[in-house]
């Protein structure tokens, strides 16, 4: 079994808190995995470590059998929960930027997605609403033919119309050679996209499994299961 991502006993401590507590996670090729948990549960911490912008305190993480570094950054397409585009850029600039730095970037696909998302190339990045910004970020990320797509809260804070477009784009992006790791706390709208789900809290995995199997076994939707696991 080849895993695109393998985290073994991952720990991350800060001065005051332990963000990851012996976390184990394996993602196979071709799977869409939902990482579900409340704010502060460790989802973003794990993702940042996988993306290579955070270092674990201890434990091992491998992406395509490599430690995080220049290679893993070239096979991971990461959508952070931030406005990470420089303010001077227009949409066209962002496309060119990605095209320049990522060999797996498909310019034509990017233009198609821009049309689909109804974004214009001349728009300034600073003039975009939250929904449009999210759609632009997603366009950039999904236009790469990466091995692992990591989407951190792709639909949070986004209006329902934009949210549907985003989900459509994510589903359309699905292919058997890539995997997707999507974090969210808005489970209801997105649970049908997942093959597998992982429930995480306090830096460790509480529950994981195939989404459909869990529905059958627990006789609940994943959203209801989420409420049950994380409810008061």
């Amino acid at each position: 079994m080849s895993y695109i991502l393998e985290a073994k006993n991952l720990n991350k401590s800060y001065f005051k808190k332990k963000a990851l507590n012996g976390l184990n996670l394996s993602i196979e090729k071709g799977r869409a995995v939902g990482m579900l948990g409340p704010n502060g549960s460790g989802k973003t911490t794990l993702i940042k470590i996988a993306a290579g912008i955070l270092r674990q305190s201890s434990g091992e993480i491998l992406i395509d059998n490599h430690e995080p570094g220049v290679y893993t950054k070239s096979v991971i397409s990461y959508l952070p929960d931030r406005n990470y585009l420089p303010k001077w850029m227009k949409v066209e600039d962002a496309i060119n930027y990605f095209n320049d730095f990522y060999g797996d970037f498909d310019r034509n696909r990017a233009y198609e997605l821009l049309d689909f998302m109804k974004l214009e190339r001349e728009m300034k990045v600073t003039s975009l609403s939250k929904g449009m910004t999210e759609k632009l970020h997603l366009t950039l990320v999904l236009s790469r033919k990466a091995k692992l797509y990591i989407l951190d809260e792709p639909i949070a804070g986004v209006d329902p119309v934009a949210r549907d477009k985003i989900l459509d784009a994510i589903i359309n992006n699905y292919n058997e050679d890539s995997s997707m790791l999507i974090t969210t706390h808005l489970v209801r709208d997105i649970e049908r996209v997942f093959d597998d789900v992982v429930f995480i809290n306090n830096g460790e995995v509480i529950l994981s499994g195939n989404a459909e199997a869990l529905r059958e076994e627990k006789n609940k939707s994943i959203d209801e299961l989420y409420k049950e696991v994380f409810g008061e």
């Binding site: 869409a32 549907d164 989900l167 459509d168 589903i171 359309n172 699905y174 049908r192 996209v193 997942f194 093959d195 989404a211 459909e212």
Partner: peptide, 13 residues
């Protein structure tokens, strides 16, 4: 693929 897009459901499903 068509159906998964229409229903917004994972293609594996």
């Amino acid at each position: 693929r068509e159906l998964s897009t229409k229903l917004r459901v994972n293609p594996n499903t």
